[in-house]
Design a protein around this nucleic acid. Structure first.
Length: 506
RNA sequence: GGGGCGUUAGCUCAAUUGGUAGAGCUGCGGACUUUUAAUCCGUAGGUUCUGGGUUCGAGCCCCAGGCGCCCCA
């Protein structure tokens, strides 16, 4: 509850707020006089935007002779007695004014308009396209009908809803706040751009299981569910990785999937329990070629959606995504930050000391963490969060990258990068580990960690290993959060980029 | 997990030290045939998130809880 009377569970009419009671009474009154407040169909001939497009640049007080039938939601009402103005808005944001004049519609239709139409109602009007004396493109109404009577009052259209109401009642947010509707369009355009970029490169889009029998593909805590038919427990997937690799084994050598992942972890301004994920794999690719492709995907999305690779963020600042992106390695940049040598041989104990002396407050002083986790935590704290420009961070500790190939030259390091944008992780790419024997060893170690209580550790997936034993071509793989990509391109928070984020029930 | 802040009319928000809970928009009634968040006159609308406590008196103070936001881990 957030303080309002709980209108949704009110059953008795006389306890409703006045404004809701009045609208229900209007509906009843219309029904009683034989007027349908929710007609099945209306003779719409034009969209609101279409009328605008077909009647550009008319001088004030013009009559066009063109008759149209249009419908839209009433956003503003201006009533001067014998002449009523209404601003109708369509779902795409197009607006058109309706003018209901006594002279045109007569006494009865005019007073019905005044009595029945509220802000927020959908109405249909037909009449001639004209401009008013002030030059506003309008429909001079010959006939009007209710298209759908709204029973709840529209919030004030001039102020944003409170944050919580925006998220809980996104449908209202979408009606009232242009930016909310715009974000939905931007997201759709970005996803479309990704698909186009992949199709141009000969990739196939697939859909792999979201209900999985084993927990694997990433380090994260899963949601658990149950199949009644099979009487087995199932995991909501934390990643599609192990199935997409099966695809590559099977000969789908350029493959991508855009779908939901679920992680049973905290939710904050950059994490959501369910989030849209893009993963893509390319036979004979490496983490170097995947970095190039990832940059191109982001740049092509920016160009297609905004027409520029210098995007304007929600706070008005500009962010440059163009050109080549910076690149650094994890161990070297960390060594520079702490002022002493850090390598895959640096003992965990030394890393714990460094963490303490740099104000990194790890649980239990990091006693439970091994070398790899400590390096990543230190790096994130000292380097990652300060990276503003788009930057590839390369060559991660091998032990925390169980699905990644050992670096071709550097011992103890994996061919893995993370892409950082404005201080958060946008994507991660690999030269994939395809040796089934090494992979089995890595997954055995993971299952030992899981048995020891690590809830993020993977289970050993025999069928996945079997697939590798048939031979997977050397491949590059990448994952990128769609919600994160929207954040990168727009500067919005994750709750703004997700239409209906999970919220605790009212 | 810890700390801080918030929760008041349909919506967005006020309310001095503890002393009759207000405004704008919205709604309702009225005036107005060219408005652009129309304007003008009148008017209604409240379990101040919930439960308990202190007090002559609580939106405000105390305790417990709900929900949300921010910071830290």
């Amino acid at each position: 509850m957030n303080g309002q009377p709980d209108n949704d569970t009110v059953t008795s009419e006389d306890t409703l707020p006045e404004q809701m009671r009045v609208r229900r009474e209007k509906r009843e009154r219309m029904l009683a006089s034989g007027i349908e407040p929710y007609p099945v169909s209306l003779p719409v001939t034009h969209g609101l935007g279409q009328v605008r497009a077909e009647n550009p640049d008319l001088a004030p007080d013009t009559s066009t002779g063109r008759i149209v039938g249009v419908a839209g939601r009433v956003m503003f009402l201006r009533n001067t007695g014998k002449l009523c103005f209404a601003t109708l808005r369509a779902g795409d944001g197009a607006e058109l004014q309706a003018m209901v004049s006594l002279k045109q519609v007569g006494e009865e239709a005019l007073s019905a308009w005044k009595a029945d139409v509220d802000l927020g109602d959908h109405v249909f009007v037909s009449g001639e396209v004209i401009t008013s004396r002030r030059g506003e493109l309008s429909v001079l109404v010959d006939e009007w009908r209710m298209a759908s009577k709204a029973l709840r009052p529209l919030p004030v259209a001039h102020k944003d809803l409170a944050e919580e109401t925006r998220v809980r009642q996104r449908y209202v947010d979408l009606i009232v706040r242009r930016q909310a509707a715009e974000t939905v369009r931007t997201r759709s355009a970005v996803v479309r751009s990704l698909r186009e970029s992949f199709h141009e490169r000969g990739y196939l889009e697939v859909e792999t299981p979201m209900l999985q029998t084993l927990h694997g593909g990433a380090a994260a805590r899963p949601f658990l569910t149950h199949s009644n038919a099979f009487d087995i427990d199932l995991f909501l997937r934390i990643a599609p990785e192990l199935y997409l690799k099966r695809c590559v084994v099977g000969g789908i050598e350029r493959v991508f999937e855009i779908n939901r992942n679920f992680r049973n972890e905290g939710s904050d301004s950059s994490h959501s329990p369910e989030f849209a994920m893009l993963e893509f794999y390319e036979a004979y690719g490496t983490y170097d070629t995947m970095a190039v492709l990832t940059r191109e995907l982001v740049q092509e999305a920016a160009t297609r959606v905004f027409g520029t690779q210098v995007v304007t963020l929600a706070d008005g600042s500009e962010y440059d995504l163009s050109g080549e992106w910076a690149s650094l390695t994890m161990y070297e940049s960390l060594a520079e930050a702490v002022g002493e040598e850090v390598t895959p041989e640096t003992p965990a104990e030394r890393l714990r000391t460094l963490a303490a002396s740099h104000g990194l407050d790890l649980a239990g002083g990091g006693a439970k963490l091994g070398h790899g986790k400590l390096v990543e935590e230190l790096w994130e704290h000292l380097v990652g969060s300060a990276l503003h420009e788009p930057t590839f961070v390369r060559d991660f500790p091998l032990e925390t990258s169980p699905l990644t190939r050992q670096h071709r030259d550097k011992p103890g390091v994996a061919e893995k990068w993370d892409l950082y944008v404005r201080g958060f992780e946008l994507a991660t790419g690999y030269s994939e580990l395809v040796d089934p024997v090494v992979e089995r060893e890595r997954l055995r170690e993971q299952s030992r960690l899981a048995a020891a209580g690590d809830e993020e550790a993977m289970q050993l997936d025999e069928d996945f290993l079997r697939s590798l034993e048939y031979g997977m071509p050397p491949s590059g793989g990448t994952g990128m959060g769609i919600d994160r990509l929207l954040m990168a391109l727009t500067g919005l928070g994750i709750r703004e980029t997700i239409l209906f984020p999970l919220v605790r029930p009212e």
